[in-house]
């Protein structure tokens, strides 16, 4: 795989958006997208955690698992790295930056089980990215996820006032909006392609 990291960065935000084309992180995506403020909070937390854990997982995979011949343990190892990092981050924030802790704190535990974080790490392994490519993919993936959830929350806030058929309220409506967004993003597919 020899793709420019900058291309990967933009592609993972727009054309291969992890929510709209890979369906990752849907649970919190549907649950937290009811208002703009908390969706942006969660989005920020995901950008931050995803960028760093992708790098950590890359290093662990390349320098510990491959030399030891333990590639098949990657699922367990990746999830432990993510959980440990989130726990550590929570403690550091609480101790040193309490302001940020109060805005992001409640979202951090949710992130451990966000499948987007694990998914990005697994895609990174399957596509055999190098260090810079992984960095670009992790950061782009996080920004793409945040973009999608903020856009959905904005639309949901606006539509809240209108009348929606009863059965479609809640998740059903969010899914339809997401589907339309996915179609819109297909229009950008000429920019870059990484698959």
């Amino acid at each position: 795989m020899d793709i420019n990291p900058i291309v990967i960065f933009f592609a993972s935000i727009f054309t291969s958006n992890i929510v709209l084309t890979n369906f990752l992180g849907m649970c919190s995506y549907l649950a937290i997208s009811k208002d703009l403020k908390s969706s942006w909070g969660l989005g920020q937390a995901v950008i931050f955690v995803m960028t760093i854990t992708t790098i950590l997982n890359y290093l662990v995979y390349k320098y510990i698992l491959i030399p030891a011949g333990l590639e098949y343990l990657r699922y367990i190892v990746f999830i432990i790295v993510v959980a440990a990092f989130v726990q550590l981050l929570e403690m550091i924030l609480e101790r040193f930056i309490p302001g940020l802790y109060y805005t992001l704190g409640i979202f951090l535990p949710l992130i451990t089980v966000n499948c987007a974080i694990l998914g990005v790490a697994l895609f990174m392994v399957i596509r055999e990215y190098t260090f810079l490519q992984s960095l670009a993919y992790g950061a782009g993936g996080g920004i793409g996820w945040a973009l999608a959830i903020v856009a959905l929350a904005g639309i949901r806030e606006k539509v809240d006032e209108t009348k929606i058929p009863k059965g479609l309220q809640g998740p059903g409506f969010a899914l339809i909006v997401t589907g339309i967004m996915a179609m819109a993003f297909v229009g950008l597919s000429g920019i870059a392609n990484i698959q």
């Binding site: 709209l20 084309t21 890979n22 369906f23 058929p165 009863k166 059965g167 479609l168 309220q169 998740p171 059903g172 409506f173 899914l175 339809i176 997401t178 589907g179 339309i180 996915a182 179609m183 297909v186």
Partner: peptide, 17 residues
Amino acid sequence: PASAFFVLAIIIWIVQA
């Protein structure tokens, strides 16, 4: 991918209605 969202949304809609 878009159709996956639509099909699931319609199934949920019918069941909830």
